[in-house]
Simulated scan of single mutants.
Amino acid sequence: MNKQQMKVAVVQAAPILFDKQSAMDKIMQMTKEAARQGAELIVFPEVFIPGYPRGLSFGARVGSRTSDGRKDWQRYWESAIDIPGEETALLGELAKELSVYLAIGVVERDREFSTGTLYNSIVYIGPEGEVLGKHRKLVPTGSERLLWGQGDGSTLTVIDTPFGKIGGLICWENYMPLARAAMYAKGIDILLAPTADARDTWQATIRHIACEGRCYVIACNQFATKASYPADLSCYDDIEGDDDVLSRGGSAVVGPLGEYIAQPLYHQEGILLAVLDRSLITQSRFDFDAVGHYSRPDVFQLIVNEKKQSIVRFDQT
């Protein structure tokens, strides 16, 4: 049964970095609070489990890595999660108990082909408690490439809900025009944009995407301070000269004509609430539909490879 309205909650917070249990506890607490306020879709920031390691070098320089930095990375690896796994089972129980959709940024361990690669992922949990899908960031940004591998087209996930189609691109993936085009072609109604970018230019980005895609954009960032960093990290010295507030936030909800439904939240932890009206999506596409009447397939075409990529194939024939 289709729904005309959906109430969404955007969680702006940060766990204790490298502390998976801290992140899980915060998810439990803030999901229950958001559900109490009537939220049906609850969105958490980029790599909320186990946190975004802003400012840390992991002992890496061009041409060398330190043994202490390797130990910090091992600690990060151990605080990542499997999809599916123990943590997603607990999140499924929570979603089922509260009858909500959850979209959570996580650091994901790859158990299928290796034990040495992490991914920056979004995991989607449904109100029946099931894992509905995941998305792996296609291109980690800058120094993130030392931490996370590249996703492939097999996880350009869009999930069907009674309200409409929901999917996401992570942080600077949203600057990839062809990635956006692929999501529009999948019929996206609500585009999730978890991020670590707190600059003013990010607001211009999410408003442009909403207007271009004629969709709702849910931007979700962490509010993080030095207090969330364990002081016993080998590379803690990397942030000693930084301001106490490492990420000021900027979470927001934007409507399909580029207007704010919920204004950006800065300088504090909190939960943004917004009611989305499906009819506004239809109305907005009256004069612009990027993959419909405003497209020119005779001039421009995009081919998307959605096959899972692997360096090894075992042929049993």
Rank of each mutant, 00 (worst) to 15 (best):
M1N: 11
M1R: 06
K3P: 00
Q4D: 15
Q12E: 07
D19A: 08
D19P: 11
Q21D: 11
D25Q: 12
A35M: 03
A35N: 09
P45K: 04
P45I: 03
E46M: 11
E46Y: 05
V47K: 11
P50A: 14
Y52W: 10
R54P: 00
R65G: 03
S67T: 14
W73K: 09
A80E: 01
I81L: 06
I81H: 06
E86Q: 14
E86H: 13
L90K: 15
L94R: 09
L98V: 01
S99W: 01
Y101E: 07
L102H: 06
I104C: 11
G105P: 09
E112S: 13
F113R: 07
S114C: 06
S114T: 14
S114R: 15
Y119T: 03
Y119I: 01
S121Y: 07
I122A: 04
I125K: 07
G129T: 09
K134D: 14
R136E: 01
P140C: 11
E144M: 06
R145F: 01
L147R: 00
W148L: 02
G149W: 03
I159T: 06
D160H: 13
T161L: 00
T161Y: 07
G168V: 01
I170Y: 08
C171L: 04
C171T: 03
E173L: 04
P177N: 12
A182Y: 02
A185N: 15
K186H: 10
D189P: 05
L191R: 11
L192C: 04
L192P: 05
A196Y: 11
R199A: 12
R199F: 09
A204M: 15
I206S: 13
C211L: 13
A219V: 02
N221H: 11
Q222E: 12
Q222M: 14
A224E: 10
Y229H: 09
Y229K: 04
P230F: 13
A231I: 13
D232Y: 03
D232N: 09
S234N: 12
D238H: 09
E240L: 13
D242Y: 15
D242Q: 03
D244T: 06
V253C: 15
P256T: 06
P264N: 05
P264L: 08
Y266C: 01
H267A: 01
A274K: 05
R278E: 05
S279K: 15
T282V: 08
F286E: 14
D287M: 04
D289A: 04
A290T: 10
A290Q: 11
V291W: 06
S295W: 13
P297F: 03
I303P: 00
K308R: 15
Q316A: 01
Q316G: 00
